[in-house]
C-alpha cells in the first residue's frame, strides 16, 4: 500500500488533496449557503399575504408586457425622448472615446514611460471605482441637475473604462512590429497611426460600442435620477407619478428594441472593420 495516498477517517482513499486556497474557497461557499438559509428564517413576513402578493405581481407584469400602450404621452414624443436618450449616450461615448484614445497611448506600458503609465492607470482606477451615478451627482453641484451634469459624469466614467480597455489592447501588440517601424526611422506618431491603430482597430470599435450600450442604459437611469430628460424621465413619470403599468411596459419595449438595434449595428461594424 502506497504511503503517498491520503485516506479519510474511515480509511477511504481521497482522490484530491486541496491546497490552502481551495480550502478557504470551500469554507466561503459553505458559509454563504448557511447565511442564506439563516436569512430566510430571520426575515419579517408579518405584513405579507402571500397569495395576493403573487397575483398582484402577475397582474402588473401582464399589464406591462402583454398590454403595452401609451396613455400620458404620444408615440411621436416617446420616440423623440428615445432619441434624446440616445444622443446623451452618443455624445458622452464619442467625447470619452477621443480623450481615452490619447490617454491610452500614455497608459500602455509598451508605448509610454513607466511613470506616465502608472500615473494614468492609478488615476483611472480611482475614477472607475466610483459609480457613474455618483460622478453625475458630484458634477451636478457645479452644473446643476440636468443633461450637462449627466454628460460630464458619463464622459468621466467612460474615460476610466475605455482607457483600461484600449491600453490593454495596445499592450497586446507584437513588439516586433513596433521595432520594425522604428528601424525604418519612423517616429512615435508614425508608429501610433501605422501600427498601433490599424492593428487594434476592431478591438477599439468593439470596446467603444460596448461602452455605448452601457451609456445608453446609464442615460435612461440618469433621465430619472439626475433630471437629464429623455425616455428615462418619461418612464419615471409613468411609473412613479401616474402608476400606469401599460405605459411602463410600452416604454420598456421601446428601450429593448433600441438596445437590440445597437447590438446588430455593432456586430455589422465589427465585421466590416
Amino acid at each position: 500500500m502506497s504511503t503517498y495516498v491520503d485516506r479519510s477517517s474511515k480509511g477511504k482513499i481521497k482522490i484530491s488533496r486541496p491546497n490552502k486556497g481551495q480550502l478557504k474557497f470551500r469554507m466561503l461557499i459553505i458559509a454563504t449557503i448557511l447565511f442564506t438559509i439563516a436569512g430566510f428564517f430571520m426575515m419579517d413576513y408579518k405584513g405579507l399575504e402571500l397569495w395576493p402578493a403573487i397575483t398582484g405581481t402577475l397582474v402588473n407584469l401582464r399589464d406591462m408586457f402583454l398590454m403595452p400602450q401609451l396613455n400620458q404621452i404620444t408615440l411621436g414624443s416617446a420616440i423623440w425622448q428615445v432619441i434624446i436618450t440616445l444622443s446623451l449616450a452618443f455624445l458622452s461615448t464619442i467625447l470619452g472615446a477621443v480623450i481615452s484614445l490619447f490617454l491610452a497611448f500614455g497608459a500602455a506600458m509598451n508605448l509610454s514611460k513607466p511613470w506616465v503609465s502608472q500615473t494614468i492607470k492609478t488615476f483611472i482606477t480611482i475614477v472607475r471605482a466610483v459609480p457613474t451615478v455618483l460622478w453625475v451627482l458630484i458634477f451636478a453641484i457645479a452644473a446643476g441637475l440636468g443633461s450637462v451634469a449627466a454628460i460630464i459624469g458619463m464622459v468621466f466614467h467612460s474615460i476610466a473604462y475605455l482607457v483600461k480597455a484600449y491600453s490593454e489592447a495596445f499592450e497586446e501588440i507584437d513588439e516586433g512590429k513596433i521595432e520594425a517601424l522604428r528601424a525604418t526611422g519612423s517616429n512615435y506618431f508614425h508608429i501610433l497611426f501605422h501600427v498601433v491603430i490599424p492593428q487594434t482597430k476592431s478591438f477599439l470599435i468593439a470596446w467603444t460600442f460596448l461602452r455605448f450600450e452601457i451609456n445608453f442604459g446609464v442615460a435612461v437611469a440618469m433621465g430619472a435620477a439626475a433630471g437629464a430628460g429623455g425616455i428615462g424621465y418619461a418612464l419615471f413619470m409613468s411609473s412613479g407619478f401616474y402608476y400606469d403599468m401599460n405605459e411602463v411596459g410600452m416604454i420598456t419595449y421601446m428601450i429593448l428594441i433600441v438596445a437590440i438595434l445597437l447590438e446588430v449595428v455593432a456586430n455589422k461594424l465589427k465585421a466590416a472593420a
Partner: peptide
C-alpha cells in the same frame, strides 16, 4: 536608420 533597412524572422508586418 533610413540608410539601414532591416528584415526579421517573424517578418513583423502590420498584417491588417
Amino acid at each position: 536608420r533610413t540608410d539601414i533597412g532591416m528584415i526579421f524572422q517573424h517578418y513583423n508586418l502590420v498584417d491588417r
